[in-house]
Amino acid sequence: MRLDAAGLARLPPAAPGLRIGLYGGSFNPAHLGHRHVSLVALKRLALDRVWWMITPGNPLKDRSALAPLDRRMEIADGIANHPRIAITDFETRIGARYTRQSLDYLRARHPQVRFVWIMGADSLAAFHRWRDFRAIAAMMPIAIIDRPGFTLTSPNARGAQAMARWRIDESDAGILADLEPPAWVFLHGPRSTLSSTALRAGR
């Protein structure tokens, strides 16, 4: 594992008070849809940075088609191509298997950073299957970015219903990072049809 002199995983630069969006996934491969989500989040949520957390693998997905981490990092870096988007593989370096472990680590390292968890509406549809999803919702605000085919279905999924009382209007998205969790917002707008699965299939 690549650690610093104190035995801690290296993370992108952060400072107290920064508003940082966390966008996790296998990025297998990264594509312009990921960049679109990040730019929407930066603008609509008034974030200072977005970190792409390149995971070692999704426990809910088949890993047989997963490209090597270094290759996924390289492609992601080229696709992001933005001074306010950083790429990190710290989850592999700390041995995290689940999102809650990663978020616990980040909050302990940077307790004064205002983190927001970002995910697509397709992920919200399966959020109830994530380990400790209720605990994740209680750890930091969540922003859902609309995806084609999930505009109407994902807000009615089990995970969304469990959090329904804490949903804020998207007109208030700019203050999400300042709210105590649980708090979440569903952001509508232009949607990207790109997907890593389709790209791997050559579609």
Rank of each mutant, 00 (worst) to 15 (best):
D132N: 10
Q112W: 08
A46Y: 04
P155Q: 10
D77Y: 12
K61E: 00
H31R: 08
A76N: 05
L42Y: 05
W117Q: 04
T92I: 02
F90K: 03
T88H: 05
L60G: 12
I118H: 02
G120E: 14
R134K: 12
L124N: 01
H34I: 12
M139N: 02
N81I: 14
L106H: 01
W117N: 05
V50Y: 08
Y105H: 10
L152K: 12
A125Y: 07
I94V: 06
L66M: 15
I144T: 09
P68Y: 13
G33A: 08
I87T: 01
H110W: 14
D104K: 09
G149F: 10
P29C: 15
M140W: 05
L124W: 02
M73D: 02
L42S: 05
S154P: 11
I145S: 00
F127L: 10
R107K: 13
V116L: 06
V50P: 02
A80I: 13
Q112A: 11
R100E: 08
K61I: 00
M140D: 03
M119Q: 03
S64H: 15
A143F: 06
R129H: 14
V113T: 12
A137E: 07
P155R: 12
K61D: 00
G95P: 03
R131T: 07
I79C: 02
D48R: 06
D70T: 15
H110N: 02
W51T: 02
M53R: 02
S154V: 00
W52G: 01
R44C: 11
G149V: 07
L60F: 11
P56M: 09
R72T: 09
T92P: 01
L152T: 13
R71Y: 13
N81H: 15
L32Q: 11
R147H: 10
G57P: 09
A86V: 00
V40A: 04
F115D: 10
R84W: 04
P111Y: 11
H31Q: 04
H128G: 12
T88Y: 10
D48A: 07
R71L: 12
T153W: 14
S154W: 02
I87E: 00
R84A: 02
I85T: 06
A46I: 14
I94R: 00
I142N: 03
P141L: 03
A30P: 07
A46C: 09
R131M: 01
H128L: 09
G78E: 10
D89V: 12
N58Q: 01
R72E: 10
T151Y: 13
D89W: 05
R49L: 14
K43C: 06
R72P: 09
N81D: 13
A67D: 15
G95R: 07
A126F: 08
T92A: 12
M140P: 03
D70R: 15
R72M: 14
D146V: 06
G120Q: 11
V113L: 15
A108T: 14
R147Q: 07
V37D: 01
D146T: 04
V50N: 03
M73Q: 11
P148V: 13
W51D: 00
H34L: 10
Y105K: 03
D132Q: 04
W51G: 00
S64L: 07
D70V: 13
L69R: 06
L69A: 10
I54C: 04
T88E: 06
I142L: 10
S26I: 01
L106A: 02
F127M: 03
R107W: 10
G78T: 15
R71M: 12
R71Q: 10
G33Q: 01
R35L: 13
G78S: 13
